[in-house]
């Protein structure tokens, strides 16, 4: 399937995938993240169950300290 991850097209070799699986697959090392699918917030507690399907727009924002 093809999704849009952080505004870039991305081919995933699966029919569907959870947010948690995508984070592992892309080896995102940052622990602190905000995740959205098609504009809807996926809360931290729901990442294991929230499913991404073909054509979905996914945003994964890395949070870093400083201010």
């Amino acid at each position: 399937m093809q999704i849009t991850l952080n505004n870039r097209p991305e081919i995933i070799d699966k029919k569907e995938i959870t947010i948690s699986e995508l984070i592992n697959l892309k080896s995102f090392t940052f622990k602190l993240l905000v995740t959205k699918i098609n504009g809807n917030l996926i809360k931290k507690a729901d990442r294991e169950t929230a499913v991404i399907k073909d054509g979905d727009k996914v945003d994964i924002i890395h949070l870093i300290s400083g201010g």
Partner: peptide, 27 residues
Amino acid sequence: DKAEMKEMLIETVLDEMPEKPLVVGLG
């Protein structure tokens, strides 16, 4: 300043007040 607090605030605002514009500082 702390990333944990940024995450907490962004998640809470997007969850409870998604219509409210939120301007964050990152990096």
